[in-house]
Design a protein around this nucleic acid. Sequence first.
DNA 1: TTGCCGATTACCT
DNA 2: GGTAATCGGCAAC
Length: 198
Amino acid sequence: MSAALARPFYLRDTTTIARELLGCELVCNSETGAASGLIVETEAYLGRHDPASHAFGGRRTRRTEILYAPGGHAYIYLVYGLHLCLNLSTGPTDTPECVLIRALQSLTGMPLMRQRRQQVPDERLAAGPGRLCRALGVSKEMNGSDLTGGGPLLVRPGQRVTAEAIGVSARIGVDYAGAARSWPLRFFMRGNPCVSRP
DNA sequence: TTGCCGATTACCT
DNA sequence: GGTAATCGGCAAC
């Protein structure tokens, strides 16, 4: 079993990290049990200069504060009053960028994931940002936790993914962001059935 | 303090 | 295809 990705991994270019996270294993040790999956879909959010980012224009509030810390922390927030989204912060201090984890291929803890989710095929257990938080047992109390050691969340190196195997598209659900709505910042494993949508 | 709206999902026709 | 659910963040008043 390989060790968690360490700080230097997270201090680099956000788009590069979003690509390299594909094929890595995301592990969540919640109070109700552990589960993990291969990351098969991500999106990059480029902070100050990205109208789709919560930190656009350098916006700094209680919610976004963690993004200004060094990369390698969890940024977890509630959307639509119902669902949590899990992001991994990236870049050095004062660079409020992050990568949204959009889908996993479940790997360990599958009975628990099935129990946490409604009756769905295994491929759909974590096929979406809200779904994967539910399946893994991610909670908002995990917001701000350090991904590089000691916390409930961590990422391990996993499968090697070639450039040809990576699909690229515009991000999902950011139609409000003007021209940024079409920026090619969504990355996914081509042909993987666990991606949130084709 | 008010009011709008969202980095979604499930279920409806 | 359409939309209800549900509430915290945030900007404006």
